[in-house]
Design a binder for these strands. Structure first.
Lengths: 224, 224
DNA sequence: GTCTATACGGTGATAGAC
DNA sequence: GTCTATCACCGTATAGAC
């Protein structure tokens, strides 16, 4: 093993795996130590407490999970079509690389909102302002505006923009959150399900296109 | 307080709330006792161990979560359109009544698949047979068959049936799993988000219709 | 059936040698 | 920086009075 690999990084990755597997309450410092191949006391040397270690991991994970999402949703230079395709593609790829991420984030956020909400807000600019001088989240303003414009000029079908965006996110994320249950339902093995997810990107793009641009010709011909 | 209310039922409901809030690892027997308004020792009198209590709760929750889903997916007498609308309507309603259910189920199933998979299989007939004499889950066979028929006779657009069904489930369930994050993203208060979810049923129905029946006229006129 | 008291094991955290 | 040994506490579970 390369000793040049910083020990604190090794610990962090081990902790990430254990926390994602078992959650904060279920994780054991001993298990993290084993996974990192070091002693339990060293954990406390690098990260003073379990809570501190957890927050370090969670902060990074939130960043990985939210930054691509937020960036693409807000980007002022993307057209509506490109924004949607970019979002779906980039998100599925991120999640294929970190399959356990979304469930972990939702789990902890849900069981302890007060403790973690500020960590989320650090990566979601604009949500903090409760001043209500804007009716909608500024993060979605551009996206929603494009959909509204499209509906006005007839290039888009009628949708509730927020419901539409939520549907897009749902189709991308839920297959990872519900993985064990869906695998059971579809009777798919581990590798088989991975392939299924990899094919999902273009399928979602097609669905979104039909919802929003039904009156136009499909971009691709039939594929089945 | 009415003493006729069976104590074991009161305990069960208290345990359900605490387990859903904190997960198995995070739940404390003391907290459950407080929530039930009784002594900690009485928990062990009615349910010998934490594990036993948890399994009782989890078995019921899985049933509530899966039985409507499975029933509608398998029902041999529903047309394709009615099956979809029934599924979405019944599912959103179930989840509005039990908002914490899906995250709880996925969480525990994911952190300890081996321990709970058999509880799921009890309520999902057919998944157990690994004999592979059918290529697909028998539970989805009818549904998938209807979609295939529709594609063959031209009444349906081309979709991957499994991807389509997964998308339907995703749009229904994810808004509940990701509740805290979505609320932040959309800047919605608790009641506001409930209203948003209540309106979601017809929106999803419209989306599914556009995906699968795009060439037909929409059932309703524009609503926005 | 419900309580108080307690046994028992495990867990986070620290002290101190090396 | 990394280890062994140990502490203080907490959580599950049980014993036993009423």
């Amino acid at each position: 093993m390369n000793k040049d690999n910083q020990t604190d990084q090794i610990i962090l990755e081990a902790a990430r795996r254990v926390f994602q597997r078992s959650g904060y309450g279920g994780a054991r410092m001993q298990e993290i130590a084993n996974e990192a191949g070091i002693n339990k006391a060293s954990l406390h040397y690098y990260y003073r407490s379990k809570e501190k270690l957890f927050q370090t991991v969670y902060r990074q994970d939130i960043k990985v999970f939210l930054v691509p999402l937020v960036g693409i949703l807000r980007d002022p230079f993307l057209t509506l079509e490109v924004r949607m395709r970019t979002f779906v593609g980039s998100y599925i790829k991120t999640l294929l690389k970190n399959p356990g991420l979304p469930l972990f984030i939702m789990q902890e956020l849900s069981s302890n909102p007060g403790r973690l909400i500020s960590l989320v807000e650090d990566h979601v600019p604009g949500v903090r302002s409760r001043s209500a001088d804007e009716e909608e989240s500024p993060m979605l303003a551009v996206f929603i505006g494009q959909i509204r414009n499209g509906m006005d000029d007839g290039s888009c079908n009628k949708v509730d923009p927020e419901q539409f965006i939520l549907s897009m996110i749902s189709m991308c994320v839920f297959p990872f959150v519900g993985r064990p249950l869906i695998r059971l339902l579809l009777k798919k093995g581990e590798q088989e399900y991975r392939d299924f997810l990899a094919r999902r990107e273009e399928e979602i793009n097609e669905y979104l296109h039909r919802i929003l641009f039904r009156n136009h010709q499909p971009i691709d011909g039939p594929r089945y």
